[in-house]
């Protein structure tokens, strides 16, 4: 799997500056190691969507109060819940690199962040091809924690996707996923042919250091 160097650099905090060769080499090494050691796992379920009002939407057995998500799903009759993870070894690799050299640890962490996003993109593309035949297309991914979509709903993802047994993702009491390099998201199936861009505009964390400039 190609881990996009540009994204790794972005996660490392470089803004429009190309790192020197030494850092680029560290990124290549980390990416090679990840590709050798990590087997990403994904899972999904397709559920019906009912839009109750402008801030309440129901996806299968999950009822959500969120303006952001409701807007995102507006006009969709169905949605995928997806989950993806790099697994426990990804956490081990960061900790390990960190102990040996903090710089390597930071690079590994950024490379994994880019990798899990790439995994989600690849998985979303698979799903897109699946629904293309039905003349449907996919909306941008929307995850618990984005805007007003509460992290509480990670519990619903756990239940509806059987995440601990299917891909080994568990939830702490404080609603964090472990392994930490894991993502859950809702992806609406839209009957309209529309341009979808996955960007940061839906998120309200405007101060976020990693915010993409649109």
């Amino acid at each position: 799997m190609e881990i996009p160097v540009r994204e790794v650099i972005r996660y490392l905090g470089y803004r429009k500056v190309m790192p020197e060769e030494e850092i680029l080499q560290k990124i290549r090494d980390a990416s090679a190691l990840l590709n050798e050691r990590i087997r990403p796992r994904t899972t999904s379920v397709r559920l019906s969507v009912i839009e109750w009002d402008e801030s309440h939407v129901q996806i299968g057995g999950m009822e959500v109060e969120s303006r952001g998500l409701t807007r995102n799903l507006h006009g969709c009759r169905e949605a995928f819940l997806i989950a993806a993870t790099l697994g426990t070894e990804a956490d081990t690799l960061v900790r390990r690199a960190m102990v040996q050299s903090p710089a390597d640890g930071a690079v590994m962490q950024a490379a994994e962040a880019a990798m899990i996003e790439a995994v989600c993109d690849g998985f979303q593309e698979e799903l897109r091809q699946q629904v293309e035949k039905e003349d449907l297309c996919l909306r941008a991914r929307f995850s618990p924690g984005y805007g007003d979509f509460s992290l509480e709903h990670q519990r619903d993802f756990m239940r509806l996707l059987h995440m601990s047994s299917s891909i080994g993702v568990t939830l702490t009491d404080s609603l964090l996923m472990v392994p930490t390099k894991s993502v859950t998201a809702v992806i609406g199936l839209s009957p309209m042919h529309e341009e979808t861009v996955h960007d940061c505009s839906a998120c309200m964390a405007r101060e976020c250091a990693f915010r993409r400039e649109s």
Partner: peptide, 14 residues
């Protein structure tokens, strides 16, 4: 000042 970035800071720290 934004002329150096995290990996370099950490390499120096190392």
């Amino acid at each position: 000042e934004g002329t150096l970035f995290l990996p370099q800071l950490l390499m120096s720290a190392d």
